[in-house]
């Protein structure tokens, strides 16, 4: 084969690749816009507005929806997160332990609590624990129960995240710490875990977002008026007013927190990406 033959690339008949690509993209846009328009036109907006966007009902929700419901949601979430973090750290260290039974226990724990729906855990905490230990009260009442239930679920996920973070710290860090005279535990606390947390901050924050939504399961524990969080509050009000506006408002309150958190996670992830040399 000669040089000239190689250089003159074979031209297919009909459209070039570029023309084909712009044609197919154009077709996709048309279908997409048509679908959105069809959806928007066919929906009964008047009905929706009546049911979900009654300004006077929305108005009467304030300030309680923030000062009570959102506050409780945040409280439940944070307490669950703290319990999950502490428990998750313990499980992660057990998983990495050189002691067989610890590893085994941690593995079983993770499999069980990752595999069960959070709803079942809530019911279990609400029903089974009082049955099994009659007379004992979980500290903090509803708050304690929620923290425990959310924490048990979160710990399973966080344990795996924390373990991955610890293992992502280069082996040389532990060796350097040991060669300076750190005990294994001290090296873990002073050198390894701080570095691991930098690595896992984005996934941990994601976990916080998930917990935030899971806190709605509190309604299966049976709560007093003062202990209601966003979902329960919205549902109660929806049934007393016979209108769904409170559900929409509650939903917006969730987004008020989850969207900024999501933004923070993306910021941290892109920052972590830059830090990698």
């Amino acid at each position: 084969m000669s040089d000239t033959e190689l250089r003159s690339a074979p031209r297919r008949k009909g459209l070039t690749r570029r023309q084909k690509r712009s044609l197919s993209r154009g077709a996709q846009y048309v279908v997409f816009v048509a679908a959105v328009v069809a959806f928007a036109v066919s929906a009964d907006w008047g009905q929706l507005k009546n049911q979900f966007a009654q300004a006077d009902i929305a108005e009467q929700m304030f300030p309680d929806v923030i000062t009570l419901a959102l506050k409780n949601t945040v409280l439940y979430t944070l307490s669950g997160f703290v319990v999950g973090l502490v428990l998750g750290m313990v499980i992660a260290l057990m998983r990495l332990s050189s002691v067989g039974p610890y590893r085994w226990f941690a593995g079983v724990y993770i499999e069980i609590f990752r595999g069960l729906p959070a709803l079942l855990i809530f019911i279990f905490i609400g029903v089974a624990v009082p049955l099994a230990f009659p007379g004992t009260e979980i500290i903090g009442g509803t708050y304690g129960k929620v923290a425990l239930a959310l924490g048990l679920v979160a710990a399973a996920y966080m344990a795996e995240t924390i373990r991955a973070g610890i293992q992502a710290v280069p082996k040389g860090q532990m060796e350097a710490a040991r060669s300076l005279g750190f005990s294994p535990a001290r090296a873990m606390i002073s050198i390894i875990i701080p570095q691991a947390f930098r690595i896992i901050l984005p996934p941990l924050t994601n976990e916080l977002v998930l917990l935030f939504k899971d806190s709605s399961l509190v309604l299966f524990l049976g709560v007093t008026l003062e202990e209601r969080e966003l979902s329960k509050y919205g549902r109660d009000l929806a049934s007393t007013t016979a209108n769904s506006t409170p559900i929409l408002v509650a939903g917006l309150c969730y987004l008020l927190v989850t969207i900024p958190l999501g933004y923070v996670v993306r910021r941290m992830e892109s920052k972590a990406g830059e830090a990698v040399r």
Binding site: Q173, E175, A176, A177, G181, I191, Q195
Partner: peptide, 20 residues
Amino acid sequence: IDAVRRRIGMVFQQFNLFPH
């Protein structure tokens, strides 16, 4: 061993400084 290691300094090929 931790007590003995305090008397022995070690320098690694990859430096192993604590980056945080």
